[in-house]
């Protein structure tokens, strides 16, 4: 059982106009096996929350805490967080020229596990995971994210999640840019990993469509840097119908 606790989190970025506060007191607790959907208008700070948990250096935590099983995540470097079992599927995965997917996956697995995976079973694991995500095996020879379509990049993120087996995964708009078939494949992947590993999920999305495939235990409405309301899956349907007006104008 793992628990990710976010307490009264305040986060700022440095801009040319000075310091700008983006997160204004976020409280959230995610336990193993739970799926939390976070929905909110553009610019409300959802990606900022995701990046802050992962440790992106651009975001400064000015107040509050992030704990993973009681350990202070904010004191960990980015790679220590990953090795502690946190995983961020990025909204915009970057290209790494010159580094093949197969080399990247093996290096990441070795780093996260602290030892190199046994070669033969590893090759089989990668192949199986790719088949399940309906990714062509030719991707392993390509450079990381280089020339990948939007949907291919997202599948590649889920492939990494499947292979690295994190305790907690944050999916930042992984569903955006996916066609219906890909959406189903990716959703099945998330469900499978959640079931197999008891992974906790923070699912950032704009669309209830993915929630037809991935059943959230909790839905949080994120507005102006904090959670404005939380509820069960029915809250997502209400947002779909009514939009965010009543929160934004509140």
């Amino acid at each position: 059982m793992a628990t990710l606790e976010i307490k009264n989190l305040h986060v700022s970025v440095e801009t040319e106009q000075g310091t700008k506060e983006i997160l204004r007191g976020v409280d959230l607790v995610i336990k193993s096996g739970e799926t939390h959907a976070v929905m909110g208008p553009n610019g409300s700070g959802k990606s900022t929350l995701a990046y802050s948990i992962a440790g992106h250096p651009k975001y400064q935590v000015t107040k509050g805490e992030i704990l993973l099983d009681g350990e202070n995540v904010l004191e960990m470097s980015v790679d220590e967080r990953a090795r502690a079992g946190l995983f961020l599927a990025m909204q915009y995965p970057v290209e790494i020229p010159g580094v093949s997917v197969s080399n990247f996956l093996r290096t990441a697995k070795t780093a996260v596990d602290g030892k190199a995976p046994a070669l033969r079973s590893w090759v089989a694991d990668v192949r199986t995971a790719m088949e399940k995500l309906k990714m062509d095996s030719a991707f392993t020879e390509r450079n990381v994210n280089e020339g990948f379509s939007g949907g291919e990049k997202k599948r590649h993120e889920i492939l990494q999640m499947e292979l690295l087996k994190p305790k907690m995964a944050i999916l930042d708009e992984t569903d955006s840019g996916l066609d219906v078939d890909a959406l189903r494949v990716v959703a099945e992947g998330v469900n499978r990993i959640t079931a197999e590993n008891g992974m906790g999920v923070l699912l950032i999305t704009h669309y209830t469509r993915i929630l037809n495939y991935i059943k959230p235990d909790f839905v949080h409405v994120f507005v102006a840097g904090k959670i404005a309301e939380q509820g069960g899956p029915e809250l997502a349907d209400r947002l779909e119908a009514d939009g965010y007006d009543r929160y934004v104008n509140a």
């Binding site: 992962a54 440790g55 250096p57 980015v78 790679d79 790494i96 780093a111 996260v112």
Partner: peptide, 10 residues
């Protein structure tokens, strides 16, 4: 950041 977020040290 991307590579570190996958567990690699700098």
């Amino acid at each position: 950041f991307y590579l570190q977020a996958r567990g690699l040290s700098e």
